[in-house]
């Protein structure tokens, strides 16, 4: 056998092996491998329910509200309805989708992780909600109510990144994030306008402002706290607050437009 023939046979063999490897159909798309198992949590620090306080308030946008950009969803006929960007959602000066949480002041307290999952829905090729709060280790139930395939792709800094496809009419995917992370972006690579943010915190003291910019954090033990207000485009603003036993304190906040 001359050199040419040997080279030719080697090349064809290599191709055959590659083809064989490629043909090995990948059936297993179970998400269990990607689901981080929460470590055994220490017992929660008790809180006296008779003394707990409440913090509530309204978050305002101080300036002319930007006009939301129209989203072109024509690349997928299953994505029906109007869609606008949710970067900054302002209604009469009230700012929605601001994540408010107790950033500091809880010390070494630990909290039980709720057994109930929070739901993230994909409907109309949009995420519902756009901003989600969850405790570290708490399950997130991800549903697809669209008649098209989505892929859910969180791009965290401190947690494990994953990417899974979810065809229509398939069971919900359950996931959790092990570490605290604020404004963890989630996107769909099939529909590039689909973006949302998950906020993973250690305590249950968080809220997301509604359409009227309102939020409420209940069950807080009396003390001195730093409350953080985080908006995906406008950044973070903090306020120091002291709450006494059974007190309800109003803490309002306003964001100014950020120069582009």
């Amino acid at each position: 056998m001359n050199k040419k023939a040997i080279l030719l046979v080697s090349l064809l063999t290599l191709c055959g092996l590659l083809l064989l490897a490629a043909c090995n159909k990948k059936e297993n798309t179970e998400q269990s491998a990607n689901t981080p198992q929460p470590a055994a949590a220490p017992a929660a620090t008790p809180i006296d329910p008779a003394t707990v306080a409440t913090i509530n308030g309204t978050v305002k946008f101080d300036g002319a509200a930007p006009k939301p950009a129209k989203i072109d969803m024509s690349q997928d006929p299953a994505c029906k309805g109007a869609n606008e960007s949710e970067n900054i959602v302002v209604d009469n000066g009230d700012l929605a989708n601001v994540f408010v949480y107790v950033k500091d002041g809880l010390g070494n307290r630990t909290f039980d992780v709720p057994s109930a999952a929070v739901t993230l829905d994909q409907q109309g090729c949009k995420y519902h909600p756009h901003v989600l709060g969850v405790m570290a280790g708490q399950n997130i139930e991800i549903k697809n109510d669209d008649q098209t395939t989505h892929n859910i792709h969180p791009t965290p800094k401190d947690n494990r990144e994953w990417n899974e496809s979810q065809p229509p009419s398939t069971p919900a995917i359950e996931k959790s994030f092990a570490r605290e992370e604020i404004m963890l972006p989630v996107k769909c690579n099939q529909h590039p306008w689909m973006k949302m943010y998950i906020n993973v915190v250690k305590s249950p003291f968080y809220a997301v402002t509604d359409k009227s910019g309102k939020y409420e954090i209940k069950g807080l033990p009396p003390g001195d706290y730093t409350i953080a207000f985080v908006q995906e485009k406008l950044g973070e603003q903090d306020q120091k607050v002291t709450v006494g036993p059974k007190e309800t304190k109003t803490v309002d906040q306003s964001f100014k437009p950020v120069a582009e």
């Binding site: 490897a21 490629a22 043909c23 159909k25 990948k26 059936e27 798309t29 690349q75 997928d76 006929p77 299953a78 098209t148 395939t149 892929n151 792709h153 990417n163 899974e164 496809s165 996107k187 690579n189 099939q190 529909h191 590039p192």
Partner: peptide, 28 residues
């Protein structure tokens, strides 16, 4: 088009080598 991960598996595409998937969005 930020579509690099619209098909999450490899070398197969949604479990198949050459089966045409639902041809929309980033998958295209």
């Amino acid at each position: 088009n930020d579509a690099g991960l619209s098909v999450p598996d490899w070398p197969t595409s949604f479990g198949y080598l050459v089966k045409i998937p639902h041809f929309v969005g980033g998958v295209r």
